[in-house]
């Protein structure tokens, strides 16, 4: 029986963000919360393998109680069990403190019900750090493949997985022993439209809530702000880009407009660089 664990995060839907035209600030109001898209694709892959091999999928998320919505969405997609690790003391965690809580949680689940593959999205769209997956792998001592676009083979008997990982240069085909941790690209699987019975089950589903008071004992010094070596020193808005010059080709003519454009690119040293000229 296959047991996959998928770590999911709830994020603001950054494709829907609006910018206040006066202040240039992000308008957070009304921005819907969604499951991090990379996590959703990773989950879809886990569920695909569960349906193929038989077994189950457990999802874990660390965050405030309203992350229940995302756990339910995972159940809707076909996950069997959801654990929400939530405590005020976890607030303000950076990636190191987050990887601590997730690794402890996943380890505890693993000890009670051995996990074959831990899935992560390649990164969360709100932070884009791509650090938590590798962090959990290090803490749990699991082999890891990042940027996975495909699982070629998943052999529970011979305890091995073969995954394809995409880099700038090529696609690497890597073999790892199980259990292993994967961080996934969107291509790994399409998100299926869940059947109605799964949706109804998910709406009635209440995830397990794990907190500082149990069932696990978390080290106070390693969670939340206390467990986070980095702090935000200051926040600022970047200077709004100054709109460059507009050349109206209908007035000056197309050839002249292109000529002026290239002259500006030359002045910025751009064309020479890309054409490999003056070096």
């Amino acid at each position: 029986m296959f047991h996959a664990l998928v770590a999911v995060k709830q994020v603001p839907d950054t494709t829907n963000i609006r910018i206040d035209p006066e202040t240039g600030n992000l308008v957070r109001e009304g921005v819907p919360a969604i499951m991090n898209p990379y996590d959703a694709h990773a989950l879809a892959e886990a569920i695909r393998w569960k349906r193929q091999l038989g077994g189950k999928v457990t999802v874990v998320s660390m965050g405030p109680p309203n992350f229940v919505v995302t756990i339910r969405e995972a159940i809707e997609m076909g996950a069997d069990r959801g654990v929400l690790v939530s405590d005020r003391k976890f607030a303000g965690a950076d990636t190191l403190a987050t990887s601590y809580v997730l690794a402890e949680t996943i380890q505890a689940i693993h000890e009670e019900d051995p996990i074959d593959v831990v899935f992560f999205g390649k990164q969360a769209i709100d932070g884009d750090t791509a650090q938590v997956g590798p962090g959990v792998a290090v803490r749990m001592g699991l082999p890891i493949v990042t940027y996975v676009v495909k699982i070629r083979e998943l052999d529970l008997e011979r305890r091995r997985i073969v995954a394809e990982r995409k880099t700038e240069r090529w696609t690497e085909v890597i073999e790892l022993p199980l259990p292993a941790l994967l961080t996934c690209e969107k291509e790994i699987a399409e998100i299926p439209f869940a059947p109605l019975p799964d949706l109804i089950r998910s709406l009635r589903y209440d995830p397990e809530m794990w907190t500082m008071s149990g069932p696990l004992e978390f080290d106070k010094g390693q969670v939340g702000v206390r467990g986070s070596p980095t702090i935000v020193f200051k926040m600022g808005t970047p200077p709004l880009p100054e709109a460059g010059e507009k050349i109206d080709a209908r007035e000056v003519g197309v050839a002249e407009a292109v000529k002026q454009t290239f002259a500006k690119a030359d002045a910025a040293g751009i064309l020479d660089t890309v054409l490999g000229g003056a070096r």
């Binding site: 880009p241 709109a243 460059g244 010059e245 507009k246 050349i247 109206d248 080709a249 209908r250 197309v254 407009a257 292109v258 002026q260 454009t261 500006k264 690119a265 910025a268």
Partner: peptide, 11 residues
């Protein structure tokens, strides 16, 4: 055009 260094209005 707001983010462009040079904008060409044309086809």
């Amino acid at each position: 055009f707001d983010v462009a260094d040079v904008g060409i209005v044309g086809d």
